[in-house]
Simulated assay, not measured.
Amino acid sequence: MSAVHPVADLYTEHHRWLLGWLRRKLGCHDQAADLAQDTFVSILTAGNAGEIREARPFLATVANRLVAHRYRRQLLENAYLEALAALPEALAPSPEDRLQALQVLQQLDQALDGLPPAVRQAFLLAHLEGASYAEIGERLGVSTSSVKQYLTRANRQCFFAIAA
């Protein structure tokens, strides 16, 4: 790879391989093409293309992460839409409110993704299941003071993600 345009070189040398790999993995050319582009955009944004030693394993790792994010977002969106479908029509939000809620859910998902697993799990247990600090601590095998620290960290992360 040249030092001047490492992402362009990476793209030129490995895009076709990544696209084929994703197509086999996903079974859909269009999704594979989108995710291949997202993979290279992610690398471009990170600014570390010049440091990549083993391109294909690196690309596969980034692409796998993006596949997982897309899958998780789809699950989140489906759960939200199912909850909306269960509401009486008079209580259903407008299409604009639905879109805004989905965007906020995606922002929260991204914010939680950057947290350690125990912190993320504590947040989900508290906010989705209504679990107490003691219950969360028991399930995670940590003290209630640790749970409080976890929730403070997760809530702060989510707040700043939405406020940004």
Rank of each mutant, 00 (worst) to 15 (best):
L59G: 05
A60Q: 12
T61I: 05
A63H: 07
A63M: 04
A63V: 05
N64C: 12
N64A: 13
N64T: 14
R65H: 11
R65C: 09
R65E: 13
R65A: 14
L66D: 04
V67R: 09
V67S: 05
A68M: 08
A68Q: 10
H69E: 08
H69Q: 09
H69F: 02
H69K: 04
Q74C: 02
Q74L: 07
L75A: 08
L75H: 13
L76H: 01
E77V: 04
N78H: 06
A79M: 02
A79H: 08
A79E: 15
A79F: 03
A79C: 05
A79Y: 04
Y80Q: 08
E82W: 02
E82D: 12
E82K: 10
L84G: 06
L84M: 12
L84E: 03
A85Q: 15
A85Y: 11
L87A: 02
L87Y: 07
P88H: 15
E89Q: 15
E89D: 15
L91H: 07
A92W: 10
P93K: 09
P93R: 06
S94T: 15
S94W: 09
P95K: 12
E96I: 09
D97I: 01
Q100M: 09
Q100P: 02
A101R: 13
A101Y: 01
A101Q: 13
L102M: 14
Q103K: 15
Q103F: 13
L105Q: 13
L105G: 08
Q107R: 12
L108M: 15
D109S: 15
D109C: 15
A111N: 03
A111E: 05
A111V: 03
L112R: 03
D113W: 13
D113L: 10
D113S: 14
D113V: 05
D113M: 09
G114M: 13
G114A: 10
G114S: 11
L115P: 13
L115G: 11
L115Q: 14
A118G: 03
A118Q: 08
A118I: 02
V119W: 01
R120E: 15
Q121Y: 00
Q121N: 05
Q121R: 12
A122H: 06
A122N: 02
A122E: 05
L124N: 07
L124E: 15
A126S: 11
A126G: 02
A126H: 08
H127S: 00
G130Q: 05
G130W: 06
G130Y: 00
A131E: 07
A131H: 02
A131Q: 10
A131C: 09
S132P: 10
S132T: 14
Y133P: 02
Y133Q: 04
A134G: 02
E135C: 00
E135S: 01
I136G: 00
I136W: 01
G137T: 03
E138Q: 11
R139V: 06
R139L: 07
V142N: 01
